[in-house]
């Protein structure tokens, strides 16, 4: 009996890993797009377009992620007409977008917080050395921001990773969806229990090292 359950898990393991690959792909694409957009929006905080940046941050930080994912999934078309060709806009990409939106708002806040955490005396010293405003940012402020941003940014990545579990709700074949299919197919309670424990273990194995590394970096930069 127990052997049957384990055998079923071994049988489904490759499918689970393929599903997990989908989650990894969504999380990496979402953090990449969210970071690129977030750095741009965060930079707007220090320009006359600041109100626009604030609006973006407030809207997407205060929306539930699931609502954003439903929004991007059902509001956007399944294909886009571009340069006379139809490009598929698959569901996994829509979910990625739904996660990248709040990610960008969070990255923008992380950047703003890091810039704000640089002591005013650094600004004063840089201004005294006749740096232009742009040079104060590029030579003095931003280089000190990157180390400060790394721990919260990695923390955000771990949260996005967990958010990829929402993809299954809009029909993306991710690891959760695969587990549900396996559970229904095998249709035995011990197997269902085992496969959801396996899911927990997979996400833990993925997020725990990130969380530990974040803590180590935080401790290291606390002295600077």
């Amino acid at each position: 009996m127990a052997n049957d359950t384990l055998a079923a898990l071994v049988e489904w393991a490759p499918a689970l890993l393929v599903g997990l690959g989908q989650n990894v792909l969504i999380s990496l694409t979402a953090i990449a797009a969210g970071s690129a957009a977030g750095l741009f929006i965060g930079a707007l905080n220090f320009s006359p377009l600041r109100p626009l940046a604030r609006l973006w941050v407030q809207v997407f930080r205060n929306a539930p992620w699931l609502v954003l994912i439903y929004f991007t999934t059902y509001v956007f078309p399944f294909e886009v007409h571009l340069f006379g060709r139809y490009l598929a806009f698959p569901d996994w990409l829509k979910v990625t977008l739904g996660l990248a939106l709040p990610a960008s708002a969070n990255v923008a806040e992380i950047l703003r917080g890091a810039v704000g955490s640089i002591p005013a005396t650094q600004w004063e010293a840089a201004r005294s050395m006749a740096f232009s405003r742009a040079q104060v940012f590029t030579q003095v402020i931003l280089p000190q921001c990157f180390t400060r941003m790394l721990p919260p940014w990695m923390n955000l990545y771990a949260i996005i990773t967990m958010g990829t579990a929402l993809a299954s709700l809009v029909g993306v074949h991710d690891v959760i969806d695969t587990a549900q299919i396996a559970s229904n197919t095998v249709n035995r309670i011990p197997f269902t229990v085992l496969i959801y424990f396996s899911l927990l273990a997979l996400f833990f194995a993925w997020c725990f090292p990130i969380s530990r590394l974040t803590q180590r970096l935080e401790r290291r930069y606390a002295f600077h």
Binding site: Q122, A125, S128, V140, P143, Q144
Partner: peptide, 14 residues
């Protein structure tokens, strides 16, 4: 005009 501060204010990343 050079300015030297009480708290030195060197750039810590350089």
């Amino acid at each position: 005009v050079g300015f030297v501060f009480q708290q030195y204010n060197l750039f810590p990343h350089l």
